[in-house]
């Protein structure tokens, strides 16, 4: 039985591990791409090529190393993103930019295909089969115009993704967010909309009260259930144990009287529990310092070979 339990635990741990690993790469999204680059962003070699961006939607770092990129649905493993490159680890809510220049010898982020004349762009998991995200490339793009998710990471994704959430963007934003806020923090906006804090006070106090009122009702309910079950048990006990005073032995009365006497005069021998009168059981705490066993020299053992 113990071995059986071990198997279950190991299985659960493995499942947990794999589900975590799976969780990581499924948080990657193709986010923005530019097909014809004549005046836009340049790579480290000063060359303008088509590029695409992958976004990590999670709040944890994801290593993209070992995943595959392709522009051919029949060859998902066209470009292997190298493992062991520190730059393939994408930080939470960050982007990584790839150059589709068909020059993979220029580094991990230069793939062996281009986007021009490609029908699709596919990101595949390290198993080489699971398509994490794919996008059908538009054919009517102007030079230096990018196509991407309107809000980073949002919209349909996966092997059957459609174009929902994607659009021609008003400006290119390689390695940065496609969508940015107007610069005001939530705190600033809060101060503008509620300069005296009254709205906040009313809202927040309401939420605090609602949370604690719900708790109050829940525990009133559980309390009444507990009381009923206690009452039931007490009734059942009284039915089975109908002991009249006449049948009660003198020893019982003596024990009760002694307990009350001790409780009243020598309180320290009792443990105190609400509504229950008991005599505390004497305890002798074990300690290796006082154990006779440890103070004795161990007898030598003869081992039979």
């Amino acid at each position: 039985m113990k071995r059986y339990n071990k198997f279950i635990c190991t299985g659960l741990l493995l499942l947990f591990h794999f589900s975590l690993s799976g969780q990581n790469v499924i948080d990657l999204r193709l986010n923005e791409l530019l097909i014809i680059n004549t005046e836009d962003f340049q790579d480290d070699f000063g060359v303008q090529s088509s590029w695409f961006e992958i976004f990590n939607i999670s709040y944890g770092t994801v290593d993209i190393g070992g995943c595959y990129l392709s522009n051919d649905p029949n060859d998902l493993k066209k470009y292997t993103i190298p493992r062991g490159d520190v730059l393939t680890k994408i930080k939470p809510r960050q982007h990584v930019l790839f150059w589709a220049d068909n020059k993979p010898y220029r580094g991990s982020f230069h793939v062996n295909f281009t986007l021009e004349d490609s029908p699709v762009l596919i990101l595949t998991s390290s198993d080489g089969k699971t398509i994490l995200d794919m996008v059908t490339l538009p054919t009517d793009m102007e030079p230096n115009q990018s196509y991407g998710r309107v809000v980073d990471g949002e919209g349909s994704f996966g092997p059957n993704s459609d174009d929902s959430g994607w659009a021609v963007l008003s400006r290119t934003s390689p390695s940065t967010n496609n969508y940015t806020l107007d610069g005001k923090s939530r705190s600033e906006m809060m101060k503008e909309t509620d300069p005296y804090g009254l709205l906040m006070a009313i809202l927040a106090m309401s939420v605090v009260f609602i949370a604690l009122i719900i708790l109050t009702f829940v525990f009133k309910g559980t309390g009444s259930i507990a009381l009923k079950s206690f009452q039931k048990k007490a009734d059942a006990y009284n039915k089975t144990k109908k002991v009249s005073l006449a049948e009660t032995s003198a020893e019982t009365f003596a024990a009760i009287a002694m307990a009350i006497h001790l409780y009243a005069n020598e309180n320290e021998v009792h443990d105190i529990e609400t509504t229950i009168l008991t005599i505390e059981r004497g305890r002798k705490n074990y300690s290796p310092w006082s154990s006779k066993f440890y103070t004795l020299r161990k007898m030598p053992e003869r081992r039979n070979k």
């Binding site: 604690l212 109050t216 009702f217």
Partner: peptide, 8 residues
């Protein structure tokens, strides 16, 4: 449990 409301 109504004492919870005082905490609120």
């Amino acid at each position: 449990p109504k004492l919870l409301l005082i905490g609120a």
